[in-house]
Design a protein around this nucleic acid. Structure first.
Lengths: 333, 333
DNA sequence: CTGAAAGCGCTTACAG
DNA sequence: CTGAAAGCGCTTACAG
C-alpha cells in the first residue's frame, strides 16, 4: 500500500540495496544510477519507513524525556516548556525525535525509564532533575544506557550533565545585596535534597562568609516545595524570629509568596530576589528581581551532549555549564 | 546481545511463534506451555523489542504532538504543559507513547507532520490549534491520516476534536457582568483568525444582544497576540474612545496587561475577567477573575478520542466538549 | 495446541 | 559499482 524501497527499485531498474545506498549517500554509486534512483524516489513520492530503518540499524533516533514528579509545582513557571523547546531545537537539527512521559513519583519515573529502555524504543534518556541517591540515575548506570541529566548529579563520574553554576549564581546575588549594604539576608529555598538547593545555599553562605558576615540559622528556611504557599510559610517563620533587610529565594514562586506576605503585613523596604526569571516577575509589585537560568539553553545543551555522544562515542565533553544572569528590578533596594 | 524471543523459545523448548502467542495472550495455548514460557521470560528478563513489534504490526503505538508556533506566547501560561500532561495520562493508560515537536510557523508544522506521517513513525497526530484554513488539517485530511484537534475546527465534518464551549464560556462571563449591573463592557481578544477568538467574541455579542444592549465597536479590540503587551495596547485603544465599566479578555496575559495599564493610569472600579485561570491570576491586585478551561482534561480527551478510534475504528464519538468555570475573584465588582 | 515459513521494510557484509 | 542474501526481532496465516 505504501511505496517501499522495492517499488523504487523496480521502477528504477536497480536492486533495493542500491536504492538504500543512494539514500544513505554511499559514495561508490555511479552518478548515473544515483540520479535515476533519486528521480524515481521523487516520482513515486517515496519516504523511508523509519521503523524498518530503526530495526535494521538498531537505533531509533529517539530520545526519552522524563518529566519529574516534583515538577507539578514548577508547571506554574515556564521552566519545563522552555527546556523542552531547547531540547527539541537541537534534536530536530540532528534528526532526532523526542518522547516524553510525565510521572507521579520517583518510582513511576523509573518505570518509564525501564519501559523505554527495555523495549529499546529510545537511544538515550534525558532526566530533568537529579536527587540525592537518585533511583533513575542508579538504574541507568546499572544497565549502562546513555543518558544525560539536567542539574549536576551528586557524583559526576562517567556522567553527562548540564547545569547552571548554582553556587555562583546565588553567590553573585548575595554579593550584590551585600554591596548595596545589606547584612541581614534571609534565604528561602525548596527541597533540601535537591543538589541545586544545596549549591544555592552554599553560594549564599559563602558570600556571607567572604564578607565576614556570620550566618544566622533563623534566616535560613528550606521548604518542601517551590510554591507561593511555601514562600509565604517560609517568610512567616523568618519573621517570627528576625527582620531581615533582604530575602533571597530559589524560585520565583517562593518569592511571590514572600511578596504576598510582605504586602499582607504591610512591610516595605525588604529587598527580594527570585530565581528562574519567570515572565510574571515583572508584574509583581514591586517588580521582582530574579536570576535568569536560560532554561532553553539548558535543554539545548542537554540534547547536544546526548546526541553528539550517541553519534560519536569518542566525544569527551561530558558536561556544559550554562550561564545565569541576575535581572535587577525594583524589588532590590 | 539483548535477549530476544528466540532465546526465550530455545530456553523454554518451544518455537518463537509460541512465545509470541503467549505474550500476546492468545487463548489457544495450553496452560502448561504458557506457564513455562512466562517463567522463562521472567528468568531471562526478556522484554519485547518495541520496534520489531511495530514493524510486524504496522503500528507504532505512538502519537505525534504538534506544538503550534503562536504558542510561544502562551508558554507563559501553563496551558500547553497541562494539555501535555492530560494527553500523557491517557496515553500511558493505554500503552501509547507521545512524540512532540515545536514549530516556528505553520509551514514548519506541516513539515513536522509530513515527517511523522511519511516515515510512519506515529499512528496519529494531535494538533493543538485550528486556524481558519488550517494547512495542517488540510494536509492530514488529504493523506487521510488519523488526527485530532484541540479547538473546534472550522468544518467539523469527519473531524475529531475536543474543545471548550467557547461561545458559552464567554456568554456566561458577560451575562454574569450584566447581572451585576454592567452595561459598558469591553472585549479584548487575541488573533481574530482563531476559531476560539470568534466563538468568544460571538458569546460576548450574544449576551449583550439578549439583554438588549447595543454593542459598541469602540469597545471591541482584537490584538495579534495573547501577551501582556497586547493587553495593555488594547486597553489603551479602548480608553481613547470610551470608559467601560468592565473588561473581558480572552487570556489572562491580556488581562494582566489591562490591569497594568489601569494601575498606571490609576483607574479603579473597572471589573476585569481573564481566561485560562493561570495560577498567577490569584496574585494580581486585585486578584483576577478568570475562566478555567480545564486544559488537562482537554488533553486527556484529545488523546482518548484519537487512541480509542485507532483501537476501534467503529467508534462513532467524534468530539468532546469540556466544561469551563468562571472563577470569580476580587477583580469582578 | 504448536511449529515452520513468510513477511514487515529496511541495511550491509560478501561476492563479483 | 551493483546484486543476492541474510539479518534486525517480531507476528501470523497456514498446516497439521
Amino acid at each position: 500500500m505504501n511505496t517501499t524501497i522495492k517499488d523504487v527499485a523496480r521502477e528504477a531498474n536497480v536492486s533495493p540495496s542500491t536504492v538504500s545506498r543512494v539514500l544513505a549517500g554511499n559514495p561508490r554509486i555511479s552518478d548515473d544510477t544515483k540520479e535515476r534512483v533519486l528521480q524515481t524516489v521523487k516520482k513515486l513520492n517515496y519516504h523511508p519507513n523509519a521503523i524498518a530503518r530503526s530495526l535494521a540499524n538498531n537505533q531509533t533516533h529517539t530520545l526519552g524525556l522524563i518529566l519529574p514528579s516534583e515538577g507539578h509545582d514548577l508547571f506554574k513557571n515556564p521552566f519545563f516548556i522552555q527546556i523542552m523547546t531547547g531540547i527539541s531545537v537541537y534534536a530536530q537539527k540532528k534528526g532526532y525525535y523526542i518522547m516524553y512521559a510525565f510521572s507521579k513519583n520517583e518510582n513511576e519515573e523509573v518505570n518509564f525509564i525501564k519501559n523505554y529502555t527495555n523495549s529499546r524504543l529510545v537511544d538515550g534518556i534525558i532526566l530533568l532533575t537529579s536527587r540525592t541517591n537518585d533511583k533513575c540515575i542508579k538504574f541507568l548506570k546499572k544497565i549502562n544506557y546513555p543518558f544525560v541529566v539536567v542539574g549536576r548529579p551528586e557524583n559526576t563520574e562517567n556522567m553527562f550533565w548540564v547545569d547552571n553554576d548554582n553556587f555562583q549564581a546565588m553567590y553573585k546575588v548575595v554579593n550584590t545585596l551585600i554591596m548595596k549594604g545589606h547584612r541581614n539576608i534571609a534565604f528561602i529555598g525548596g527541597p533540601e535534597d535537591w543538589n541545586m538547593s544545596k549549591d544555592r545555599l552554599d553560594g549564599y553562605k559563602r558570600a556571607l562568609q567572604v564578607h565576614g558576615i556570620n550566618f544566622n540559622n533563623d534566616l535560613i528556611i528550606q521548604e518542601k516545595d517551590f510554591t507561593e504557599q511555601c514562600g509565604m510559610e517560609g517568610m512567616r517563620k523568618i519573621l517570627d524570629f528576625a527582620m531581615p533587610s533582604a530575602v533571597v529565594t530559589t524560585d520565583d514562586l517562593l518569592a511571590f509568596g514572600v511578596n504576598a506576605l510582605l504586602h499582607e503585613k504591610n512591610i516595605k523596604n525588604i529587598s527580594l530576589v527570585g530565581f528562574n526569571n519567570t515572565p510574571l516577575a515583572t508584574y509583581q509589585i514591586p517588580s521582582l528581581s530574579s536570576v535568569d537560568i536560560n532554561a532553553n539553553k539548558l535543554g539545548y545543551y542537554a540534547a547536544k551532549l546526548l546526541i553528539d555522544k550517541l553519534r560519536d562515542s569518542s566525544i569527551t565533553d561530558n558536561h556544559y555549564i550554562i550561564e545565569t544572569n541576575l535581572i535587577e528590578r525594583h524589588s532590590i533596594i
